[in-house]
C-alpha cells in the first residue's frame, strides 16, 4: 500500500482527481446529450472516489475505502434509475438533447 504512495506521491493523485472532476463538470455544463452528461456525472463521482482511496491509503485508515464502496453502490443504483428515465424520455420525444427539455419554466 504504502509503496504505491512512495512511487506516486499524494499530490499526483490530488491533481489527477481534480482534473477528472473538472472534466466532469465541464462535460455537464457544455454537452447537450443527456447520456454524455450522465457519464460526466459518473466521472465526477469516480474522481472523488479516487481521492478518497488515496487519502485513505495515506492515513492508513480503511474508512475512506468503505465510503467508496457505498458511493459505488449508490452510483450503480442511480445509473439504473437514470438510464431508465432517459429511455422513457427518448420514447416520448425521440431525442435526449437536454435543451429540448425546457418546458418547466415561468
Amino acid at each position: 500500500m504504502n509503496n504505491i504512495l512512495h512511487v506516486v506521491p499524494l499530490s499526483y493523485y490530488v491533481a489527477l482527481s481534480s482534473l477528472l472532476f473538472t472534466i466532469g463538470v465541464m462535460g455537464v455544463l457544455f454537452r447537450r446529450n443527456a447520456i454524455i452528461i450522465f457519464m460526466c456525472i459518473e466521472l465526477m463521482l469516480n474522481a472523488v472516489n479516487l481521492l478518497l482511496t488515496a487519502f485513505s491509503a495515506q492515513h492508513g485508515d480503511a474508512s475512506g475505502q468503505v465510503m467508496v464502496f457505498f458511493i459505488m453502490a449508490v452510483a450503480a443504483a442511480e445509473v439504473a434509475v437514470g438510464l431508465a428515465i432517459l429511455v422513457m424520455i427518448y420514447n416520448n420525444i425521440r431525442t435526449v438533447d437536454i435543451n429540448e427539455l425546457n418546458k418547466l419554466k415561468w
Binding site: V25, N102, K103, K105, W106
Partner: peptide, 17 residues
C-alpha cells in the same frame, strides 16, 4: 424574478457550479 426560471438545465447547473 420568475424569468430566472429559464427551464434549460444548463443554466441551472451553471448557477450551481
Amino acid at each position: 424574478l420568475r424569468y430566472v426560471q429559464t427551464g434549460s438545465i444548463g443554466t441551472y447547473v451553471f448557477g450551481m457550479v
